[in-house]
C-alpha cells in the first residue's frame, strides 16, 4: 500500500552499517505526480530533520533498490521511476535519531518536455503542488 501523503509513514527508521551500528536514518517519499519519470528528469534539493538542514549532497536516494547521489541521477535517462514506487531518502548520522516524533522533509521537483522554462523553478523544475514536503513521523 502506498499512502496518499507525499512523505510516507512506513519506512521511517534508523539505518545500520555492516557491523550493526546505527549510522543514520531514512524515510520514504513519492512524487505525487500523475506519471513516472526518468531518473535524469528528477531534481532534488536539501532535506531537513527537526528544523536542521541537510545539504542535498549528503542525501542518498534509493529507488527500485539502487542507491544514487543526486548528481548520479542526472545522467541516468534509461531508468524509469514509477509513481506508485516510493523512493527512500537516506541520511548519514552516526547514532541516528531517538525514539519519538520527528519532523522530516525534503525538496524536490522534475523537468518534463512540455514544461516551458518560465513555469519552472531554476533548480527544481516543476512540482505543481509545491517543492518542499515534510511530515511529523513517529520513530519506533
Amino acid at each position: 500500500m502506498v499512502e496518499k501523503e507525499i512523505v510516507q509513514a512506513r519506512g521511517f527508521r534508523n539505518t545500520r552499517d555492516a557491523k550493526g551500528n546505527v549510522d543514520g536514518f531514512q524515510f520514504r517519499i513519492k512524487t505525487g505526480y500523475y506519471k513516472g519519470i526518468w531518473l535524469s528528469q528528477f531534481r532534488v534539493g536539501d532535506a531537513k530533520v527537526d528544523g536542521e538542514t541537510i545539504a542535498r549532497e549528503d542525501v542518498i536516494w534509493e529507488i527500485n533498490g539502487i542507491e544514487y547521489t543526486p548528481d548520479e541521477m542526472l545522467l541516468i535517462g534509461d531508468t524509469y521511476w514509477q509513481v506508485a514506487t516510493p523512493a527512500t531518502v537516506k541520511i548519514r548520522r552516526p547514532g541516528g535519531l531517538e525514539q519519538g516524533y520527528h519532523t522530516v522533509g525534503v525538496s524536490f521537483g522534475w523537468y518534463c518536455n512540455y514544461q516551458a522554462p518560465e513555469r519552472c523553478h531554476p533548480q527544481l523544475g516543476t512540482n505543481w503542488a509545491g517543492y518542499y514536503w515534510e511530515r511529523e513521523l513517529l520513530l519506533v
Binding site: W38, S40, L74, Y111, C112
Partner: peptide, 8 residues
C-alpha cells in the same frame, strides 16, 4: 512523451 530534454 518524446522527451528530448531528458538531460539537463
Amino acid at each position: 512523451w518524446c522527451d528530448t530534454k531528458l538531460y539537463g
